[in-house]
Amino acid sequence: MMVLGQTSQLVDWDWIGRNIDQIADRTWQHLSLTAVSVGIGLVISLALAIVALRWRWSYTPITWVTGLLYTIPSLALFALLVPVVGLNATNAVIALTSYTLLIIIRNLVAGIDSVPDAVLEAADGMGYTRRARFWRMEVPLALPVIIAGLRIATVTTVGLVTVTAVLGLGGYGYFILRGLNTFFWTQILVGVVLSVALATVLDIGFLVMQRALSPWARRAR
């Protein structure tokens, strides 16, 4: 059985040294679960956002359904998916993806909506086709808002991946769950700190990308 306060110090550096390979494996797992979920989420959101922009009336039901998915707690969604897909990575990816949809769609639509009417009218007046106007005016101008949505979705997903530990996955969440069961501080702290670090690194990465892709927005300040 477990022993309370297995070690007196908070961080057992030896343990970290001994388990560096496992930490690397879990890093990869955490990162790939996040990337796959946000990636699929982006593709689905793009499709739904295009539908919502084309047929405005569909935006309300789309946000309703994605909002519903967003509201269901992760542990419950994992459980509900067990009879459908089983206890595996597919389960985790479906659930994690469903949490990204609301955030990404909202920002896609808000971003496109934020493009000034005068710019659109000028583009029409210059002779842009609908399609060219969408891809060359609306999407580039919406990029800062779209990427802001991806940042929020990514950071949220990194946090949620830890809960997939109950499915036998978890990325860094594995360490948190193990640490809980053994009352081992080092494992819990490794799990939490690395998870926060991963979220921060990805967040900064998106920020850098946003700056690089929208130089006009930066120079305006």
Binding site: L4, V155, G159, T162, L180, F183, I188, V192, V196, D203
Partner: peptide, 22 residues
């Protein structure tokens, strides 16, 4: 908000648990 979002709630729960038990 940004910090709140980056820290996994599962992690906060685990830390609170260990601290209170100790």
């Amino acid at each position: 908000v940004n910090i709140g979002r980056a820290v996994p709630s599962f992690g906060i729960l685990a830390i609170a648990f260990l601290v209170l038990v100790q």
